[in-house]
Design a protein around this nucleic acid. Structure first.
Lengths: 125, 125
DNA sequence: CCGGGTTGTTAGGTGCGTCTAATTGTGCTA
DNA sequence: TAGCACAATTAGACGCACCTAACAACCCGG
């Protein structure tokens, strides 16, 4: 169940694109993540291999149930961290997003829960 | 002035060993970081190349002025993050240390400053 | 219904940080 | 002071994530 930071980011962008109601495309992923199309293609094949995405040559890109729940977990971490940064620490939204995007991949579940508890306690959720 | 996370960790462990007043040795670094001795050796040569450490074959390992100030910066970030986690969020010391050790390498300077300001404001420094 | 622009894929290669196995250097002790 | 244990280094290889260049498939306008 171990996933690299890079792979987590690919998964997350698919999830967010779904949330936005847009079609997931290799080119768009590449430009959003700032990598080349072959890198995206390669990542998708790895993620498919690991059972996180459904993907066929030139076909649609979708998340499997497992991929979806993984992505959701990451996304939730992101939101929690961002809330702490914006609501408690008074950071700018954009900056908070950037930091959250990097921290979400390395922070422990325990730490996230500690943040959540604090946000509840201080009515910042 | 860009340094990889791996290299930051090597630098930090040298700094901490200095703080503890102990001699810096390849073997100890390897076991503390959970990597092999050749990995440490290689890292030291890279860091020497980049001007962060003084290091000769079979010689003492010390930080240059630049290396020292870099390490100090990282260490300070670590302390700030840890304080937030322990004093504000109520996390265990050890857990907070582990999280801080990973987050310190990806968090922005702005975010650290926001944390510092918050700690001051709430008398947690 | 076909030709060209866009999108996606393949092939091949690079850098970084890691490893194991083998070798060399150091320094203590008998 | 010779030898031995252990510390450090070298050599060579691997995995991962990335790249560029080239090629293949898709699809839409004429």
């Amino acid at each position: 169940m171990k996933m690299s930071i890079a792979m987590q980011n690919y998964l997350e962008i698919i999830y967010e694109t779904n949330l936005a109601g847009a079609k997931v495309r290799v080119s768009d992923m590449a430009s959003k993540l700032g990598v080349s199309k072959p890198s995206v293609n390669n990542a998708l094949n790895v993620l498919k291999e690991q059972g996180f995405v459904n993907y066929e040559r030139y076909g649609d890109i979708t998340l499997t149930d497992i991929g979806e729940s993984q992505a959701q977990k990451i996304f939730k971490k992101h939101q929690t961290i961002k809330k702490l940064f914006v609501n408690v620490l008074g950071m700018e939204e954009e900056m908070a997003d950037d930091d959250a995007c990097r921290i979400e991949h390395v922070i422990s579940q325990d730490a996230v829960e500690a943040i959540e508890k604090y946000l509840e306690k201080t009515d910042n959720n």
